[in-house]
């Protein structure tokens, strides 16, 4: 049973019970979530690259430990794959998930690694419930979550409100294209059975252009200038991530690579400084 405070939110009860059943497998690298384990270094690469890039633009004294000391929120942390990596690089990380078994698994796994304790904490809650707290974050990440929530627009605006001014929002999700249907649902779930059938729902996939449009019309002060067809490099960025089955690894596609964002992609947008 979900706590009542979660019910009026973007959390989809069916999705939560689905992932709760799989929770014990989060840290089995060869199991259900093998793809996510393999994807994690690429997510971290994109996050580090983008943070370093913006820091360099602003001529700050840039250190390689760009994440050190940042307040980071990982929404829908699952077993904590990304949260642990963020914490290891020195970010003050909070992982939240609407599934209680997920949080239990994440807490237990983090407890086996003594280096994580000072930077990492987990909470069983929804993003919406955090709005009532005063704490805001330098970076909000939500990886492979957007395609599982109800009312993605509400979810995005919640994430946006959780950011400090000039904060960074990182998302990764799947585009709504025939290719994405073929690869993520037909091949991965139904043919190769690498992912549990029912993990994804095609209609919930979101195109990169829809994310850009959302932030072009968001609030009184849009995050991306509405006039331009493409967001500038300092406003937002969409990068495809492509799976190479031969080396069983994911690669971050170059900017504007042809068709790279047709399936899995990462999205970054920055909150204006007000």
């Amino acid at each position: 049973m979900l706590p009542s405070r979660l019910l009026r939110s973007t959390v989809n009860a069916a999705e939560i019970s689905f992932f709760s059943r799989l929770s014990s497998q989060w840290w089995d690298e060869r199991g259900e979530f093998a793809f996510l384990h393999q994807m994690n270094p690429v997510r971290m690469q994109f996050i580090r690259q983008k943070l370093l890039e913006t820091a360099c633009d602003e001529d700050e004294t840039v250190s390689q430990n760009i994440l050190k000391g940042l307040q980071v929120l990982d929404v829908g942390c699952g077993g904590g794959l990304l949260s642990e990596s963020l914490a290891r690089l020195g970010a003050r990380t909070v992982g939240i998930d609407a599934s209680e078994p997920n949080i239990e698994i994440a807490k237990h796994h983090a407890s086996t690694d003594s280096r994580l304790s000072e930077n990492l904490s987990y909470m069983h809650t929804s993003a919406e419930s955090l709005l009532s707290q005063s704490r805001r974050y330098d970076v909000v990440c939500s990886m492979e979550v957007l395609e599982h929530v109800d009312n993605p627009a509400l979810f995005l605006s919640t994430c946006a409100q959780l950011l400090k001014p000039s904060g960074h929002l990182f998302l990764s999700t799947i585009s709504r294209t025939p290719l994405a249907y073929f690869l993520t649902i037909m091949m991965a779930e139904n043919v190769l059975r690498r992912v549990a059938p029912g993990t994804h729902t095609y209609s919930k996939f979101i195109k990169p252009s829809e994310l850009v449009e959302f932030f072009q019309s968001y609030g009184s002060c849009p995050w991306i200038a509405p006039s331009a067809a493409q967001p500038t490099r300092t406003e937002a960025e969409v990068r495809g991530i492509v799976y190479n089955p031969l080396s069983s690894s994911w690669n971050l596609a170059p900017r504007d690579a042809w068709a790279a964002t047709e399936c899995n992609y990462m999205f970054w947008v920055r909150k204006p400084a007000e």
């Binding site: 060869r30 971290m44 580090r48 914490a87 290891r88 690694d113 069983s248």
Partner: peptide, 14 residues
């Protein structure tokens, strides 16, 4: 550099 746990199979596979 990517904050991975260096003991895991995924980190060592390359």
């Amino acid at each position: 550099l990517s904050g991975s746990d260096i003991g895991t199979h995924a980190s060592l596979l390359p």
